[in-house]
Computed example of a mutant assay.
Amino acid sequence: MAMRPAIFLDKDGTVLADVPYNTRPERMCFAPGAAVGLALLATTGLPLVVISNQPGVALARFSIDELQGVHKRLEEMFAEAGARLAAFYFCPHHPDGVHPDYARVCDCRKPAPGLLHAAAGAMSIDLASSWFIGDILDDVEAGRRAGCRTVLLDNGNETEWRGGPWRWPDRMEKNMEGAGRWIVHCLAGGDRRGSPAHATGAPA
């Protein structure tokens, strides 16, 4: 199979409003601008892949089986927005967890890039021509370590602004709508890297 780009998306705070440790489908709702952003990204024809840390499994807040309902509702919500969810990858680990099967350091918990590499291998994704959209700098670092271009949503969810060589996004936007418009612009032949100083609050 030929390699192709993809668009990776963080889940909570990016696609969905951030409701901590939620696995109830009826409580899942789009973050501001996310439905329009997904519709814009759908026009690219690229696979849309959700990459999410789910430490609630390791912390015994919910079971790994409960994430099946989250996956199904995500698929429905993407369809409602006129898009298609190609895959949902999640990390159930946390080094301070209490569940013996998941309480460990791993290579899939963001900011590590393991989930992106797993998706790339399974779906023949060219990471160097792909994008990662997230709402905190751990998303940016995971994307950049995997070789992707990155968009940080400057929506107030990043509070520490801990900098570093992997934690500078290619672009900053207020929400998924802005990110979607920028990526569509880039894929149509615009500036492929963009300006990391586009929004306020850029990391040092």
Rank of each mutant, 00 (worst) to 15 (best):
Y89I: 09
A118W: 01
L85Y: 06
D101A: 15
A120M: 00
A79P: 07
P92M: 12
F62T: 11
D107E: 14
P100C: 03
Y89F: 06
S130Q: 10
A122C: 05
S129P: 07
Y102Q: 04
L74T: 05
M77F: 14
W131K: 11
H71N: 09
A128D: 15
A120T: 00
L127P: 11
R144C: 09
G121F: 00
K72D: 12
F88C: 02
G114C: 08
T150R: 04
L153Y: 13
S130K: 12
H71S: 06
D154L: 12
E80K: 08
R149H: 11
A60S: 14
E158R: 01
I125N: 01
R144D: 05
G121E: 15
A81N: 14
M77Y: 13
A81C: 14
S130G: 13
F78N: 01
G121A: 03
H93Q: 14
G69M: 03
F88N: 03
G97S: 01
H117L: 14
C106S: 14
Y102C: 03
Y89H: 09
G121Q: 05
C91A: 08
D96T: 07
E66M: 15
C91L: 05
P113K: 14
V105D: 04
C91H: 04
C91I: 00
A79V: 04
A120P: 00
W131D: 14
G97I: 05
K72A: 15
A60G: 04
T150I: 03
L116K: 05
V70Y: 08
D126G: 06
P111G: 04
Y89D: 00
D101G: 12
E76P: 02
E141V: 04
P113R: 11
L115A: 11
R73H: 08
P92K: 01
H71I: 01
G147F: 07
K110I: 10
R104C: 12
L115F: 07
G97K: 08
R104T: 02
I133T: 10
N157P: 03
L85S: 14
V105M: 02
A146N: 02
A79M: 07
L127K: 04
N157Q: 06
D107C: 08
M123E: 08
G121V: 01
F62S: 07
A146K: 11
A122N: 06
V98G: 04
A120N: 02
S63F: 07
E158K: 02
A112Q: 14
C106Q: 09
A86V: 06
M123T: 01
P95Y: 11
D126F: 03
R84L: 02
H99F: 09
Y89W: 07
R144T: 06
D135V: 02
P111M: 08
D96Q: 12
I136V: 15
E158G: 02
F78K: 00
D101S: 08
R162P: 00
H94F: 06
P92E: 15
L115I: 11
Q68F: 10
E160F: 00
R145I: 07
E75V: 10
N155M: 06
C148P: 01
F78H: 09
G97H: 08
R104V: 09
I136T: 13
A79N: 10
